[in-house]
Amino acid sequence: MEHAKLCMKGEIDMATLEIKDLHVSVDGKEILKGIDLEIHDHEVHALMGPNGNGKSTLLQAIMGHPRYTVTQGSITLDGQDVLSMSVDERSKAGLFLGMQYPQEIPGVTNSDFLKAAMNARLEKPIKLFQFIKQMEGAIKELEMKPDLAHRFLNDGFSGGEKKRNEIVQMKLLKPSIAMLDEIDSGLDVDALKVVANSITKQKEETGLGLIVVSHYERFYTLLKPTHAHVLVDGRILVSGDASLAAKIDTEGYEWISKEYDIDLNSKEDTYKRISLGSCAAAKRG
């Protein structure tokens, strides 16, 4: 609750999400095989890697999706044990996941949904006019149609509308650490800018820390990552700074296997963790 209060004031205090030796299984199959990652407020971490290597699994496990079983390791947010929290407690503690596939919920309007989500983290329900002002502000900022508030949640939304709607939710819920899973797919170039500007604005206003999964360098160029990681076969193979994202955009993932003598398709436990660039010396705040 401490956090929730801070969040509603605007600027977040400080946030550290720490993942240590995280192993995650789905239906008995191990997908993540020992992830170490630390994210602070004001940082932007690009999380890259070929499809099917566990990026979404990592983010869903952090959020607490019931299908993903953590078999080993720890996740903490400002020292609090995230793994012992329920999904809603994680949200209230300051975590947010903009999902790759947002759910459609016919019958529940966007505004009722958001109001309920905001009220869940407040002691007194938000005043209606305040809520409307905030929601309208976010809808306008993301250049969505004004009727968005009254439509059923993601029901019949285009792919791009769903993604923007995730950001509308992030705007109103003001997390301290947000994870955005391919939030830019389905967006055209103009929409990409609108979304990136909105995310950057929130980061500047609140000090939000971000983990961003994307396949597009353009999105990373706009968001200016401070860190980059390549996740392959359930492990973070390479970490670096923004130049790593750029390099992957121009050269793909092949160079990783050549340069570091690693077979990208190998399932064997032979990966080393390699550090590139200014990862360790990243700026804070």
Partner: peptide, 16 residues
């Protein structure tokens, strides 16, 4: 369950 998870990820508990 997927809808419930989505809503819970925004801060509502299961009952809410």
């Amino acid at each position: 369950e997927n809808q419930l998870y989505y809503m819970q990820s925004r801060g509502m508990n299961r009952t809410q």
